[in-house]
Design a protein around this nucleic acid. Structure first.
Lengths: 341, 341
DNA sequence: CTGTTAGCGCGTTCAT
DNA sequence: ATGAACGCGCTAACAG
C-alpha cells in the first residue's frame, strides 16, 4: 500500500513536525534527542513505513554499513562456521556481511576485494591464500581495513585472528602419550601447508617432552588431505615395520579414512591403535568410531575478527596498534582415543 | 599512494578528455561507446586508480548491485551449497551477495529483510521458514523481488526454486525394490516436515507400483532427524517383528546413525539390510559403509534462484509471470545399497 | 556517439 | 535540543 521507497527522511520530518536533521539524529544518535521528540519521530517513521536509503548515507558519509568476508569456499565447514560468527557479530553491530568465495582463484579474489571497495565497505575479513602483501597494501590505501584470518605468517602489518596450531598439535600429542602410546604416526596430505607444519611441531614437542625419539615416530603423507587420502595413509601405516599404537591426523576427514583403512585390515581402534583427528567437524561425532579430535572455536574466531575490524575503524586519531587474537584449541575426547578406563 | 577514494568519475572524465556521462557509459554500457573512447577512458580509470562509488550509483539509480540470501544456517551443508551457487552466479552478473542466517528467529529474519530494503537490494532469495505471506507481500511493496527456495507449499505468488522431493523418494523406493527388497522401513525425525512428507509419498508410490502392501512397510520416527536419532531409529527397527531388508532414511546423518545401530547389533549392510540416505552430503561417501543416497543439485539450485531473481527484475513492462524451477534429484549408488553383483 | 545538467536522499555543519 | 542549507558522486534524460 504505502508506496515506500518514495518516503524520504524529509517526509518523516514533515509528518513529525521536526526538521530532517532531527530525524537523522533520532536514527543515528538517539541520545542527542529529547525523549518526546524521539517518540514523535519514531511514530512517524512507523506510520509512513520509512525505509532509510543506505545508498544516500553511504554517499554522504563516505562509508557503508557493509563488511566483507573473503574465504576460499563456504561449503567447507571450517569456513562456514567462521561465516556464521562473522554474520552474527556484524549484525549485532548494525553491519551486514558480504560473502565471497574465492575458490582459490587469485583474480576473483582481487575483483571481490575491489567490489568491497566500490561499496565503500569498512573493510574485509580475509583468508589470504592468494592476495600478496602488495595488493593488501593497495587496498589499505583505498581506506579499507583488513583483518587477516588464520594467516600463515605473522609478518604482516594488520590485525589478525588465528588459532594456535602448535598448541593443537601439542594437545593431541600429550593426549596420546598420556594414554601410554609410544609408537606414534602423523598423517597429513602433501607437505607444505603452514597450519599442518605447526600442528606437527606441537605434536613433536609433546613426544620430545615425553622422552620419545624420532625412532618412535613416523610421518606419513598421502596425496590429498581427504577421506581417500586417509585410506591411502592407512595402507602406508599398515606397511610400517612396526604398527603404531597412536595416529594423529591433520583433519577429521583423513582420520575417518584412516579408521576405515584400519578396520578393513582388522586393526581395532582404539584397542590396538588410538586415532586423533583435528577440527571437530560434524563428522567427528558420527565416525565409525567416534573421533577424539582437536576442537577449534571457529564461530568465536569469526566474531573476534569483526570486533578487531570495528575496533580498527573506531580509531580515528593516533596510531592504531594492530592486534592479533589467538584462540586456543581444545581436545574433545571420544572413543577413538578415550581416557583409560 | 594514489589517494583513491578521492578520485571521482569527473576526474576520470577530465583526464580522459571526455564528459562524465561518457565515463558512466563506458562503465555501465560499454557498447554505447566508441572503441577509441572506451580505450581512453579505461586507461584513465586505471591510471588514476578510480574506484566507483556504489553508494552514489545506488542513490541515483534507486537500486543497488546487491542481493540477499536469507537462510536458517550456513553451517548446514545444504544451505552452504546454495550459498556457494548464489554467490557465484551473482558475481557473474555483477552483483554481490549479502548473507544472513536467521537461526530460525523470526525477528531476525524480518530485520534482515529490512536491511536488504535499506540497501535498496534488488531482492532476496529466501528460505521462508518464518516469514509469512503478509510480510513477504509488504517487502514486495517496497520494490524488493523475492525468490523462494525449497518452499513447502506452492500457493505463493512469486518465483521459486525447489527440488522434487516426491521424485527423490520415488528414486529411493524404486532402487530398493529393484534390489529385491520387500520389507521396507522409512526412518524420519518428528513428523510434520513437508519435505519429508513428500519424500515419503514418493517412496510409498514406488512400493505400491511394485505391488507391495502396507504390511511390508514400517514408518519410524525418532526424536531428532540427526545421527543420534538414527541410532535411536535403529533400535526401533531391530525391535520390529520382522527385520526389514531395506531402509530409507530422511537424511544422510540419520542413515549413518542407523548404520551404526545395525552394526552394533551385528546386522550386516547391505547383506541383510540395504540402507538409502538422502542429500548426498559430504559424509555419505565416508560413512562406515559408503552410503547410497539421493543427490540434490544445491549449487545449481542456488544459481537458478539468482537467474530467476534477475529475470524478474529485468521485466519492466507487462506482467511478470512467476516461474518455478524444479530440479530433479538423482540417485547415487554406493555400497550400502549397491547394484546386484 | 558524446556532452550537459539536474537532482537522487541523507548527514553535517553552524546557527539558534 | 533543534533547524536550515549545502553537497557527497553518480546516472539518466536529453540535446546535439
Amino acid at each position: 500500500m504505502s508506496k515506500t521507497g518514495k518516503v524520504r527522511l524529509s517526509d518523516v520530518a514533515k509528518a513529525a513536525g521536526v526538521s530532517s536533521g532531527t530525524v537523522s539524529n533520532t536514527i543515528n544518535r538517539p541520545d542527542s534527542v529529547s525523549d518526546a521528540t524521539r517518540r514523535k519521530v519514531l511514530a512517524a517513521i512507523r506510520r509512513l513505513d520509512f525505509v532509510p536509503n543506505e545508498g544516500a548515507a553511504t554517499l554522504r558519509s563516505g562509508t557503508s554499513k557493509l563488511l566483507g568476508l573473503v574465504i576460499p569456499d563456504v561449503t567447507s565447514s571450517f569456513y562456514a562456521e567462521i561465516a556464521k560468527g562473522v554474520a552474527r557479530q556484524a549484525e549485532e553491530h548494525g553491519y551486514a556481511m558480504l560473502l565471497f568465495n574465492t575458490d582459490d582463484d587469485p583474480n576473483r579474489e582481487i575483483r571481490q576485494l575491489e567490489t568491497l571497495a566500490r561499496h565503500r565497505s569498512i573493510g574485509a575479513l580475509i583468508v589470504p591464500r592468494m592476495a600478496d602483501e602488495h595488493r593488501l597494501a593497495r587496498l589499505r590505501e583505498l581506506g579499507m581495513h583488513l583483518v587477516l584470518i588464520d594467516r600463515a605468517t605473522s609478518e604482516h602489518d594488520g590485525c589478525s585472528v588465528s588459532i594456535d596450531d602448535v598448541r593443537g598439535g601439542l594437545l593431541a600429542g600429550q593426549h596420546l602419550v598420556s594414554l601410554g602410546r609410544r609408537r606414534l604416526a602423523f598423517v597429513d596430505g602433501p607437505a607444505g601447508v603452514p597450519q599442518a607444519g605447526r600442528r606437527l611441531e606441537g605434536f613433536r614437542q609433546a613426544l620430545e617432552d615425553a622422552g620419545l625419539t624420532s625412532a618412535d615416530f613416523a610421518e606419513i603423507h598421502a596425496e590429498t588431505a581427504s577421506y581417500a587420502g586417509g585410506q591411502q595413509a592407512a595402507r602406508q601405516v599398515l606397511s610400517l615395520a612396526a604398527l603404531p599404537d597412536g595416529i594423529f591426523c591433520i583433519n577429521d576427514q583423513m582420520a575417518i579414512g584412516v579408521l576405515n583403512g584400519l578396520a578393513h585390515a582388522g586393526v581395532t581402534v582404539p584397542a590396538r591403535v588410538a586415532v586423533v583427528g583435528y577440527g571437530d567437524s560434524a563428522v567427528a561425532e558420527s565416525a565409525p568410531v567416534p573421533l577424539t579430535t582437536v576442537h577449534q572455536p571457529m564461530i568465536e574466531l569469526g566474531r573476534a575478527a569483526v570486533d578487531l575490524l570495528l575496533g580498527e575503524v573506531a580509531v580515528t586519531r593516533g596510531e592504531h596498534h594492530h592486534l592479533s587474537t589467538v584462540f586456543n584449541p581444545t581436545l574433545v575426547v571420544r572413543e577413538s582415543a578415550p581416557y583409560p578406563a
